[in-house]
Amino acid sequence: MEKLSLFLGCIVPNRYPGIEKATKLCLQKLEVDASDLPGASCCPAPGVFKSFDKATWLALASRNIVLSEKMERDILTVCNGCYGSLADANIELKKDPEMKARTNTCLKEIGMEFKGTTEVRHIIEFLYKEFGPEKLKGFITTPLDLRVALHYGCHLIKPSKERNLGETEAPEFFDELVEATGAKSVDYTDKMMCCGAGGGVRSGHAAESLEMLEHKLACIRNAKVDCIVNACPFCHLQFDKGQLAVNEKFGTDYSIPVLHYSQLLGLALGFSPDELGIEQNAVQNIEFLAKIYEISAGLKSTTQC
């Protein structure tokens, strides 16, 4: 299916609308046919709801999938968590007729039926497979002279069995998409480590979650980057809001800007930082904002990488 529906989830529309705006602007510019998905709910978040009750997890996920099936569009997510729930539920329901029948018994109560006619895509996987870094470069109008600490996040690539995105220890596809914008993806210690938010740990065990985050931030700071780039609003929230909480808890002074890939790509496609909601983050790094406004206005030479 070439037509997509944009699945927002919770954190994008309800906490970081800049990611929603940036994604819509990028998709328009790339001429991708992506509509809204009216009436969609929480995916539901895999770390918590899949940990509580599988039938409920499948019922809510399949309801969201059915909304897209009815529109005859594949679902596009911009969140690793939503991808983890929707893609995994979609695969399980397509593979297991018994599970599908049980889930459809629940869906029947609201006049819905899961048919299994749609695919679930993640924006990074979609851009890599449908565009690829070389084609994407053709759209770039504002090459970004930025050093980036890329955070893949977990559920974009794991569990790897059904993802078809290659190995999980040192993947490169996302780095290639970052470098297509002109930015440099800088290697750093424990790059593939989790941000510490998933699995209900951020909500249930906040102190431990922040300890994991602090380790990650220390590694990133050592790499001397301009910003962190992610593809998951929950990782985004952990890195952004969590960074302030880490500073309070550990007496540190981290001020590392955090961008979703849609926002990074948006800059490279010529949109300004305020159109992309970058200033709405909790972390306010004036130096970085000045830098991206300069790049955006074409004041800074982008050839001295």
């Binding site: 770390g47 559920h155 794991k158 510490g196 209900g200 740990v201």
Partner: peptide, 18 residues
Amino acid sequence: WLCTTCYTCQERCPRGIP
């Protein structure tokens, strides 16, 4: 409840245990 469900253990398990 301290597991972040990052799946690293599952990916690396030499016996392929989920």
